[in-house]
Amino acid sequence: MTMRSRRVLFLVAAAIFGFLFVWGLSGLPSFGDYRGPYGIVLGQIVMSERHTTEAVGATTFDYRGFDTMGEEYILFAAVMGLVILLRELRGERTEEEEEEEYPVHRRRREASDALRVLGLALVGPLVVLGIYIVVHGHITPGGGFQGGVILAAALILVSLAGRYPAMRRVRPIPLVELADAGGAAGFVLVGLGGLIAGSEFLYNFLPLGEPGTLLSSGMIPLLNISVGLEVAGAFVLLISEFLDQQFISGLGEE
């Protein structure tokens, strides 16, 4: 199909879709005039029922905990899929034995000293920041996902600011995979705790504690930590698969 006929077809479809979209949205209450019951109820009960100061965290990990488990496994499955996809690519590359090609291009320029010092100096603060965001997920904005990506960023920073071999040393792949899988399993295990306590799956069975303190909200911090581990592992795995691609038939770098 030519670009021109494709554009025409798109415009027709977009006009129809746009009409239906606007028609569908016209039934919504106007902006700022929210009337949904769940949000209002949650806003009133989340402090007294779960001792959590973070209503979104409580919704994600407690009231909608089962959905979040599904989301975690989407992440898990996607990273698995990516690893399989790229590992196959890696196999093909090495078979072709392209070692003699483009040695100059492949010789990656080293980061300048200033960049390296600044980058490596940031690794520690990033780890602290990531842990802070993960464990305060039930008090202030943040949580397992955001904190997990920051923890992963700390490891990725080593490769960006330093050298690839250094990155390989600080990311023992089995450990990263263990964090990924362990975090995913941890979520289910915490959920099973509810069953053991004699209630349903993902029931908040732990003591609730004082709202606004680190040890409060029952199992929500535990779920945050397991999600944080999983996400950190998943993102390190993901980015290092992409990074490995850059050095597939690499020469002398290691």
């Binding site: 973070e54 979104v56 965290g57 965001i133 904005p141 943040g142 949580g143 996902f145 955001q146 990506v149 920051i150 960023a153 990725i156 993102f235 993901l238 980015i239 992409f242 990074l243 691609q245 850059q246």
Partner: peptide, 22 residues
């Protein structure tokens, strides 16, 4: 929505750019 803003910052300024660039 500070939570969502935080996720967007994390994904938009770190995860997506590094994946695109690589």
């Amino acid at each position: 929505a500070p939570d969502v803003a935080l996720s967007q910052i994390v994904v938009g300024s770190l995860a997506l750019p590094s994946m695109i660039v690589l």
